[in-house]
Simulated scan of single mutants.
Amino acid sequence: MKFDHVFRDPALYELALTHRSIGRPNNERLEFLGDALLDLVVAEMLFEAHPNASEGELTRLRSELVNGKRLAGLARKLELGDKLRLGPGELKSGGYRRDSILADAFEALIAAVYLDAGFDACRHVVKRQFEALVQDMPRSHKDAKTRLQEWLQARGLSLPSYALLAAHGEDHARTFEVACSLDEPQATRFEAQGRSRRAAEQSAAEQALAWLERGETS
Rank of each mutant, 00 (worst) to 15 (best):
A43R: 12
A43Y: 07
E44Y: 01
E44F: 01
M45T: 06
L46Q: 04
F47Q: 10
E48I: 10
P51A: 00
N52V: 06
S54N: 09
G56I: 08
G56A: 15
G56K: 01
L58G: 08
L58V: 13
L58K: 07
L58Y: 07
L58A: 09
T59M: 05
R60E: 15
R60D: 14
L61I: 11
R62C: 06
S63C: 05
L65W: 11
L65H: 08
L65R: 09
L65D: 12
V66A: 12
G68S: 14
G68A: 08
K69E: 15
K69G: 11
R70Y: 00
R70E: 14
L71H: 03
L71R: 15
L71D: 03
A72T: 05
A72L: 05
L74E: 12
K77E: 15
E79Y: 07
L80A: 02
D82N: 07
K83Q: 12
K83A: 13
K83R: 15
L84V: 10
L84C: 04
L86E: 10
G87M: 09
G87D: 05
G87R: 09
P88R: 14
G89T: 06
E90F: 03
E90M: 12
K92E: 10
S93K: 15
R98L: 03
D99L: 01
D99I: 01
S100F: 09
L102F: 11
L102Y: 11
L102A: 06
A103P: 09
A103K: 06
D104W: 05
A105Y: 04
A105V: 07
A105E: 03
A105G: 08
F106H: 13
F106L: 15
F106P: 02
F106I: 04
L109A: 03
I110D: 03
A111N: 03
A111T: 02
A111H: 05
A112E: 04
V113F: 02
V113Q: 01
L115E: 11
L115Q: 07
A117D: 00
A117R: 03
A121C: 05
A121T: 06
R123C: 06
R123N: 09
H124V: 05
H124K: 14
V126I: 15
V126K: 05
R128S: 12
F130T: 04
A132H: 13
L133S: 14
L133P: 06
V134C: 01
V134F: 03
Q135G: 11
Q135T: 14
M137Q: 14
P138E: 07
R139Y: 04
S140W: 09
H141V: 10
D143P: 04
A144W: 08
A144E: 14
T146D: 07
T146M: 08
T146P: 00
T146N: 02
R147V: 10
R147L: 12
E150L: 10
E150T: 14
L152G: 09
L152F: 08
L152M: 07
R155E: 10
G156R: 06
L157R: 12
S158G: 07
Y162W: 11
A163D: 10
L164P: 02
L165Y: 01
L165W: 00
A166L: 06
A166E: 14
A167N: 10
A167P: 02
E170P: 13
E170D: 08
E170S: 05
D171G: 04
D171Y: 07
H172F: 11
R174Q: 15
R174F: 04
T175C: 09
E177H: 12
V178D: 07
V178A: 11
S181W: 03
E184N: 07
E184G: 08
T188V: 00
T188E: 00
R189D: 01
